[in-house]
Simulated assay, not measured.
Amino acid sequence: MSRPLASADIFVAIADPTRRALLDKLRLGEQPVKELAEPFAMSLPAISQHLQILCEADLVQMRKSGRQRLYSLNPEPLKQISDWIRDYEQFWQDKLGALGNYLEENPCSDT
């Protein structure tokens, strides 16, 4: 049985702040790699490596137009993260609710 690439893991893909910034830029629409690389102090090959990881995680799609490679956001896989976080939101709401109930039932006295 083959193991999936670590870079195909959506959590690994979004762990890097540069990749999160690239996803934010792609929310504005499809862009070529040169445009995506402008705000970063790194080489085009380094940006391309980040984009490759995002493509492997299916967060970004690439298409060729002539000699250019154009990248666009595919937000659908982010639902996996949203679903995962939602479970923890419910956990913390339950815990905070229980704490609130405890504090109401056991008020602190200022003596």
Rank of each mutant, 00 (worst) to 15 (best):
6 A>S: 07
103 L>T: 04
19 R>K: 06
28 L>G: 03
1 M>V: 14
11 F>D: 05
23 L>Y: 06
55 C>F: 03
98 A>V: 12
11 F>G: 05
67 R>W: 12
39 P>A: 09
19 R>G: 05
61 Q>V: 11
89 E>C: 09
48 S>Q: 11
57 A>F: 02
58 D>W: 10
28 L>Q: 13
72 S>D: 13
104 E>Q: 13
82 S>N: 10
107 P>Q: 10
85 I>K: 07
58 D>K: 15
25 K>E: 12
9 D>C: 01
21 A>W: 00
43 S>M: 11
35 E>N: 08
79 K>Y: 09
102 Y>E: 03
86 R>C: 03
17 P>C: 00
96 L>G: 02
84 W>A: 15
55 C>H: 10
72 S>F: 00
80 Q>Y: 10
57 A>P: 00
72 S>L: 07
86 R>Q: 08
17 P>T: 01
21 A>H: 00
5 L>I: 01
66 G>V: 10
52 Q>N: 11
110 D>A: 04
60 V>T: 15
9 D>S: 07
31 Q>E: 05
7 S>C: 02
69 R>S: 15
66 G>T: 13
56 E>V: 13
7 S>I: 08
111 T>I: 07
69 R>V: 14
15 A>K: 05
63 R>F: 04
93 Q>I: 02
77 P>L: 07
31 Q>S: 03
53 I>E: 07
27 R>V: 05
50 H>C: 15
73 L>Q: 11
88 Y>A: 09
72 S>G: 14
47 I>E: 14
48 S>H: 10
33 V>P: 03
108 C>M: 13
8 A>V: 00
12 V>Q: 06
105 E>Y: 03
108 C>N: 01
25 K>S: 08
51 L>G: 07
74 N>K: 10
93 Q>W: 01
90 Q>P: 01
51 L>C: 15
88 Y>K: 14
7 S>H: 12
90 Q>D: 09
107 P>D: 05
46 A>C: 05
26 L>H: 05
67 R>E: 15
106 N>S: 09
82 S>W: 02
57 A>T: 02
69 R>G: 14
22 L>Y: 01
74 N>E: 07
90 Q>I: 05
1 M>S: 03
23 L>D: 04
61 Q>W: 13
22 L>C: 12
78 L>H: 12
27 R>Q: 05
8 A>I: 00
8 A>S: 14
77 P>R: 01
71 Y>S: 10
7 S>Q: 15
90 Q>H: 06
91 F>W: 10
84 W>E: 07
31 Q>F: 01
18 T>D: 04
20 R>W: 04
98 A>C: 09
81 I>F: 09
23 L>H: 02
105 E>K: 04
103 L>Q: 12
